[in-house]
Computed example of a mutant assay.
Amino acid sequence: MKIKHLTFLALAFAMGNNPVFAQKGKPLFPEQPGMVSYTFRKSLAKDAAATLDTLKSLGIKDMEFSSLFGKTAADLRKLLDERGIKASSFGVGYADALDKTQEVGQNAKILGAKFVRVAWVPHQGAFTLAMAEKTVADFNQIGKRLKDEFGLTFCYHNHGYEFEKYEDGTLMDYIIEKTDPKYVSFELDMLWAFFPGQDPAALIKKYPGRFKLVHMKDLRKGVQGNMSGGTPVENDVALGTGQLDIPTILKAAKKSSIEHFYIEDESPSYATQVPQTIAYLKSLTY
Rank of each mutant, 00 (worst) to 15 (best):
S267E: 14
K26V: 12
N140S: 01
V233E: 15
F139Q: 02
V136F: 07
K212I: 00
Y174A: 10
A279Y: 02
A252C: 11
A14I: 12
A113D: 02
K206F: 08
T231Y: 15
D168Q: 14
S283V: 12
E133C: 05
K24E: 15
V184G: 01
S257V: 04
G93N: 12
T248E: 12
D148W: 00
K42N: 08
N17M: 10
R210Q: 11
M227S: 11
A193H: 04
F211G: 03
S43P: 03
A252I: 03
P247Y: 09
K42Q: 08
N140T: 03
S43M: 12
N107M: 03
N235K: 02
M172Y: 01
Q106R: 09
V274T: 09
S283Y: 11
D199R: 10
A74H: 14
L98N: 13
L9M: 15
V92F: 05
G169Q: 04
L284A: 12
R210I: 06
F194K: 01
K71N: 14
S37R: 02
L244I: 15
D53T: 12
L239I: 08
K42T: 06
A48W: 02
D99A: 14
F211R: 12
A279K: 07
M172V: 05
D199W: 10
G84Y: 03
A22K: 11
L129Y: 10
K178G: 06
L203H: 04
N107V: 02
V274A: 03
H260I: 02
I3N: 15
K205M: 03
F13D: 15
G70L: 09
T179W: 03
K182F: 06
L239C: 04
F115C: 00
A97S: 05
A252E: 05
T101A: 05
V237Q: 05
E133Q: 13
I176N: 03
A238D: 01
L68V: 04
P122M: 10
L152P: 00
F261E: 04
P19N: 09
F195W: 00
G84C: 09
E259C: 07
A202V: 10
F150R: 02
F115A: 00
Q106W: 01
T39I: 13
K114Q: 09
K206D: 04
A137Q: 13
M216L: 15
K251Y: 06
G230W: 11
T153H: 01
G59D: 11
A95R: 06
H157L: 13
A132D: 07
D81K: 08
L44Y: 03
V233H: 14
K212A: 07
Q198D: 02
S269V: 08
A252R: 05
A193C: 11
V233M: 14
D173Y: 07
A271Q: 13
T272G: 11
G105Q: 01
S43Y: 10
L52H: 00
K56E: 09
A95T: 12
H5C: 14
Y280F: 15
